[in-house]
Amino acid sequence: MAMVHRSEFLPWLPPMGRKTLFALALAFICFAFAFPVLWLILTSLRPESGVYYVHRGTEFTLGNFAEVLREERIVEAFVNSALIATLATVFSLLVTVSSGYMLSRFTGPASRLWFGTIYVFRCVPYISWVLPLYFVTQSWGIYDTYTGLLLPHVAVHICFFSWLMKGFFDGIDPSMEYAAMIDGCTRWGAFIRVAVPSALPAISALAVLCWLFTWNEFLFALILTGNRVPMITVVMAQFVTEMGLRWNLMAATAVMALVPAFLIALFGQKYVIRGLRI
């Protein structure tokens, strides 16, 4: 690929100028993408007295983080969010890998019907089913509990992830599975021992995405939880209205909420990039 199309933009510029321009453009783009996060981090390191003049002070402190961590509700929210995100990832994958496999390996009315269902429900706006879900979970007695938040989170991933999984399995040659079945493997054996291991990079990519989506999700948490199961996104949004002026604490909370997501994404980046070829 490297030696292929070396035709350049701005051919009238001398190579040196072109290089500088390219580097400047790159630097600008990176700056635009990273600036909000950098600014957030900087804000989180300023003491209360300096937070309104982030750009000028020279004092820095880790006190904001310590103060935030003393708030029981915030710590609890972190634990809840991490727990729900992890459980939702496990259950979503269990459910959608098999559903995507079915969509990919079988054609026929059942498969077409299931695909149509998935597509339609993928289009339905969250608000249209989460709003009444508020009543459903209340009447089932699971409002504001782990179950009541976890299962809708698994349900929301079914459509999109089944669709993605179908794409992944489409890219895997089924002849290995046929060979396994001729050698005496059952259908389940062929699926679990042959197909799933060869789809592992894609499944890892989905795991990363699923964890991030659940960790970052807001609307479900807002509607389906009250005081018993605080989630980190909701707690932060309440911050904005309740503690609107204490930007240093808000920034510290937000930075801490970014850390797990960054670690997961950094670690999983290569799987996502490899796994997402559609």
Binding site: I29, F33, P36, V37, T233, F239, L258, A265
Partner: peptide
Amino acid sequence: VQTILLVPLMVAPVIAAIMIRWIFNDQFGI
């Protein structure tokens, strides 16, 4: 560069909104 460009993918929409709100704050925003 690729890693930097993927940064927003990891940021929760709520956190992004909080950051932007702070950056565009009418009194103290940068």
